[in-house]
Design a protein around this nucleic acid. Structure first.
Length: 461
RNA sequence: GGCCCCUUCGUCUAACGGUUAGGAUCCAUGGUUUUCAUCCAUGUUACAGGAGUUCGAAUCUCCUAGGGGUCACCA
């Protein structure tokens, strides 16, 4: 069975790049009717927080991705790791290193000065003497000293590094807390993962983890290293480049399906297809189509996708989502009228709620520029006559209101704009917006008259 | 700096030795619309550079340049 995972370290919110690799892993598991597991990498004593864990879980929940089984916390598995450390020690595959931190950094400086790669020199690898006093040892694993460490990467292809690139790295700190590369390999193996999809910043961890796999006799999974997402300038994505926290997109009025659709196309493609429902993603996703090159982050397409998903969202769901943006039309009998009149004008839920409020809230003032242009000439007479005709018409539907506008246009032999402009500014305070017939159908005749009268008063004053 | 990876329109990408290098987005123009938006149509813009291999190269090889990753008792 295909098993994938997402393994964040809880040091903050869920990053947009993290969501993409999680999405890839999740899709691949779903596609193969496998399992997608979640593991929290909290071996770092100080840096991780519970808040971060809930933040990550919340983001997962928002986008609708769920994991199988219980989330695994590495902090609760120290006994397990300890067992393997002891096993390696006993088998002579790992050893205690009594080098102090000072000595280590001195060694690094020397290597740096000589222009060499900094690496541990293995001085305690075969140490049998009396250990120095006052130094609590770290445990290092014996990495191969010659040859190459190689594996097949599902994205990059054949990948190998020279054994000299991998030193005898620390698997347990002084004090016994195990380190990242050690526990990742153990957990990935024990969780029965078949495919590890992660960012390619982990590419160089893989040979180290393979050392652990081999020392412990574990089966090595398939690795896929996905290139990073950079900012528009091709540099590392940072907070200055806009939202990097997944949940920020919720506040900005993006729909999760738009975000997922956007992210799935960043570094992956299926021919010319741009729009993917989650079901389609699952059906079509294949890591073999993951791009080798990194991609730049540009929100244009996300905005376009978001507009698309807003336009196609069922009204009851849209109304539900709008509540968070200060618009509650869930129980309104005008709900469909309102949404039909506005949903093509908002690329985000924020913009959509603004459009709706524009109609629902009577203008408190008229933009001087708009008013000057729209209320000039015989606008006041036209508005007055329009009101008379409106009262007589008993109009209540969009079509009926439209007929009233057409009637006055025909009667006075004027262009549509002659009534359209002043009427729009009267109703909205704005020169642009939804169709007048739609707006009036939403407001009703009484409210329309009220707003127009207010405008007439304004013109007179 | 060492090692490694990457490089097609501004951006996301297609192409798996033979195409007028395709699609999407953005932008521009036109149409639809009382306005705006939507929608539709049209258009501008790309194989990083240089050598090879081949009848033929965006696709294969090498070099150069640019970008990125990584070199912890962090994850």
């Amino acid at each position: 069975m295909t098993r994938t995972r997402f393994a964040p370290s809880p040091t903050g919110y869920l990053h947009i790049g993290g969501l993409r690799t999680a999405l890839f892993s999740w899709l691949w598991a779903k596609k193969n009717s496998g399992e997608f597991l979640l593991r929290i990498e909290d071996t770092d004593l100080a840096r991780n927080s519970e808040d971060a864990v809930t933040a990550i879980l919340k983001a997962f929940d928002w986008v609708g991705m769920s994991y199988d089984g219980e989330a695994i916390f590495q902090s609760k598995r120290f006994d397990l790791y300890k067992k393997y450390i002891e096993q390696l020690l006993k088998e002579g595959k790992a050893y205690k290193c009594y080098m102090s931190k000072d000595e280590l950094s001195k060694l690094r400086e020397e290597q740096m000065a000589k222009g060499e790669r900094t690496r541990y020199d293995g001085r305690y690898r075969d140490f049998t003497g009396t250990p120095p006093k006052g130094v609590e040892p770290v445990i290092r694993i014996k990495a191969p000293q010659e040859g190459r460490i190689s594996f097949t990467d599902g994205v990059k292809g054949e990948f190998s590094v020279d054994a000299s690139e991998v030193d005898d790295f620390v698997i347990a700190r002084a004090g016994g807390v195990p380190t990242y590369n050690f526990v990742v390999a153990i957990d990935d193996a024990l969780m029965g993962l078949t495919d590890v999809i992660r960012g390619d910043d982990h590419l160089y961890n893989t040979p180290k983890q393979i050392v652990v796999y081999n020392a412990l006799g574990f089966k090595i999974p398939n690795f896929y290293h996905v290139a990073m997402i950079n900012n528009e300038q091709g540099k590392k994505l940072s907070k200055r480049d806009g939202a990097t926290d997944v949940m920020e997109y919720k506040t900005l009025g993006y729909l999760p399906e738009a975000l997922l659709n956007f992210l799935v196309r960043l570094g992956w493609s299926h021919g010319d297809q741009e729009i993917f429902s989650v079901e389609e993603m699952i059906a079509l996703f294949d890591p073999k189509n993951i791009n080798k090159s990194s991609s730049n982050y540009n929100l244009d397409k996300l905005l376009w996708l978001n507009a698309h998903y807003i336009k196609n969202k069922p009204h009851n769901e849209l109304a539900e989502l709008l509540v968070d943006f200060g618009v509650d039309i869930r129980d309104s009998d005008k709900r469909d009228l309102i949404l039909n009149a506005t949903k093509e004008r908002g690329k985000t839920l924020v913009e959509l709620s603004e459009q709706i409020n524009l109609i629902l809230n009577a203008p408190t003032e008229y933009n001087p520029k708009n008013a000057k242009k729209a209320f000039k000439g015989d606008a006041i007479e036209i508005l007055g006559e329009f009101l008379e005709m409106l009262k007589e018409s008993n109009a209540s539907t969009k079509e009926e209101y439209h007929a009233v506008i057409e009637a006055i246009v025909a009667k006075r032999e004027i262009g549509f704009g002659k009534i359209g402009m002043p009427l729009r500014v009267s109703l909205l305070g704005s020169m642009t917006g939804s169709g007048l017939d739609e707006i009036m159908a939403i407001l009703g005749t009484d409210e329309t008259i009220k707003r127009v009268n207010k405008a007439i008063e304004f013109i007179n004053s």
